[in-house]
Amino acid sequence: MSDCGCGDKPCTYVGGLDVGSTYTKAVILNSEGDIVGRSMCNTGFKLDVAAQKSFDGALADAEIDAEKVGYVISTGYGRHQVEFRDITVTALTAAARGAHWFFPNTRTVLDIGGQTMKATKLDDAIKVRSFRLNDKCAAGTGAFLEKTARYMNYGTEEIGELASSSTEDVEISGVCAVFAESEVINQLSIGSAPADIMHGAMNSLVGRSLQLMRRIKMEPEYTLIGGIMRFPTMVKALTAELGEGVNVPEGDLVQYVGAIGAATLAQQRFGKIEAESAEIIEA
């Protein structure tokens, strides 16, 4: 991706891996804390394979070998399957750190991924103070949008464009991925356009997100992360509801926030270990 940027200083890299239910993301930071490599792949059913694949991709992007990486932290639901990790951290902690890395004034993080929706409130020290997750099901997550699109013969990559071409409001009553099919059939039977149904599905998710955020007594600034925030319609609808102080990392970085958070923690931890080693040598 780029030169490490460390000049003449000894350069040791750190890695962060976020093994999510849908995608696995890997990030490499240099000793200055800059992203020098990143990669993402489908998680699938072999979590260890996905972790290795995304890590290899990030190394290739950074144009370095694995032995140059001094410390690796994994996060996400599959974090325990990453054999080459040093330690693991929870997805909430990694997201908090990542959101702070992008936007230091973040106080509330909304993370909507393929299978989960999480709202987290942070304090000044970037510690989790309150949090709330969706119930253990795919309602109100990326899976709901994917299934809604699929029942109308659209692919995941078409969701964003489809929703943004909506011209009329359609009310989608539920966010259950299992019952998305009947919701879609019902809407199509009364003449609703696919674009409007998709837009309605996103609005339904916005409502669900706000419920979750209110339960943790959200405060600005808000940082929106996760795969769902790739869709401008979703961000626009959330911004309209939240008002001022909404942050969204640019482009596909919105999906890397957890991995970046893990990598920044890796850097902190590695720095501490290095300092302790230096003290021992001096003694």
Binding site: Y77, H80, T90, R132, L133, N134, D135, K136, C137
Partner: peptide
Amino acid sequence: QFVASGERLSE
């Protein structure tokens, strides 16, 4: 709060 299971629940 919410429904959870497995490792996530204890964490």
